[in-house]
Nucleic acid binder design. Structure first.
Lengths: 218, 218
DNA sequence: GCAAAACCTGACCATTTGGTCAAAAACTAC
DNA sequence: GTAGTTTTTGACCAAATGGTCAGGTTTTGC
């Protein structure tokens, strides 16, 4: 029967997953060039040659890591389609992004490193799927503006703001921790951070606000 | 007289500056470990041994780069003290940070890399001067809240938001550029970005807003 | 059982990298 | 001019690093 075959496949998948996880952790800190296969192997608790058995080259391993992060990233944007109104959608999106920063900080850091380096590996993705993804969300936000649900803000910069702030809690977690007395944010503090972000942004783009209509809009 | 001595000193300073600039550019992209002295030398247009003449080790060079960025960073916060009211202060601070991102993106990226790596070099600064700096700004923001100038937001998260968003335009400039059709933001676009950030944040914390009082505040 | 396939790993190699050094070049002071 | 000082740089070295490989072990299919 196929059970033993299945076992092998499962073992292989488990091994690859362990390696990918260790690689993500190391790449998160040192970036592509600064990371070493020896360190990834050590983190994974495997001999270096074994890593090369599953992932022939450092670049292929890195690419796999980045691709997995990227695809999980895009899924978070589904709330834009599945929410009844702007406030619900953006609120859910911010929450989702904050959860990702809390639960998968390494992925966010790998992405940050990749972009810092000029996206040598995922440039093609940026130019295709990310561009499309972003444009479709911009269209949705513009629709909300047209419907008067939110103030006439630039959708692009609104998205950047959400990305920047939510990812900051992952990418700059070390700084945040240091300014939190050297301790990681507790569950309650994560909740407060999320509430703060949601409150300021949602309030900042609320349609009924009068302040921004007085501002220049030439 | 000392004129020739002065010339020498000037030449030395100029050489150090050129090296520091090249180093900043390289460290910005590859981080500490990922950067090579050879590449820094090439960027500076000098032989590698010459770099070592001015900066004995890679770590010392890196430390100098980071320290210079850090100190220039803190100065931007002076507007908190020199502004008459909250809106003016925060507006000026955001503008100042956006200008820094536009004019000195490498510095911001070096900082990002340093924090991503767990601040191996400037950890002591984080725990002393940055902590003090942040606390003093928190005190000021709390005063604004007490005076009713702004809504009762968590000052810490407000600061993080400003840092995150403004630095995003430097650290993720490659992504922003790609989503801008592959071209750097034009002067006008930088202005729009700055206005967007200021508008959303200032509006988001405006005291007269009614939305956030309806929110939970338990 | 047993041959074949898949998996594992210590030892090894070529290249890269941070750093050294001695000798040359340029400059200064008198 | 010349002795001393500072600056410049090609050549070199030891350590680190990505990757290879041969030989071993385990698992699979029959």
């Amino acid at each position: 029967m196929g059970s033993e075959k299945e076992t092998r496949r499962e073992a292989r998948i488990a091994a690859e997953r362990a390696i990918l996880q260790a690689a993500e952790e190391v790449f998160a800190i040192y970036g592509f060039k600064g990371s070493t296969m020896a360190r990834i192997a050590q983190t994974a608790g495997l001999p270096k040659a074994n890593i090369h058995y599953y992932f022939p080259t450092k670049l292929e391993l890195y690419r796999r890591v980045v691709e997995e992060i990227y695809s999980s990233w895009l899924e978070a944007g589904d709330v834009f389609d599945n929410s009844p109104d702007a406030a619900t959608a953006l609120s859910a999106y911010i929450e989702s992004k904050m959860d990702t920063s809390r639960l998968h900080p390494f992925g966010s850091k790998v992405w940050a490193n990749e972009i810092l380096q000029g996206a040598p590996v995922i440039q093609d993705y940026l130019e295709t799927s990310l561009r499309d993804w972003t444009q479709s969300r911009i269209d949705i936000i513009n629709r909300w503006i047209a419907e008067g649900q939110i103030a006439p803000v630039d959708p692009r910069h609104l998205l950047y703001m959400i990305w920047a702030v939510t990812q900051h809690y992952a990418d700059f977690s070390h700084q945040v921790e240091t300014l939190n007395g050297g301790k990681p944010l507790r569950s309650q503090q994560w909740h407060e951070a999320t509430q703060s972000v949601k409150r300021i942004i949602l309030n900042g783009i609320s349609a009924q606000s009068s302040a921004q209509r007085a501002e220049e809009q030439a």
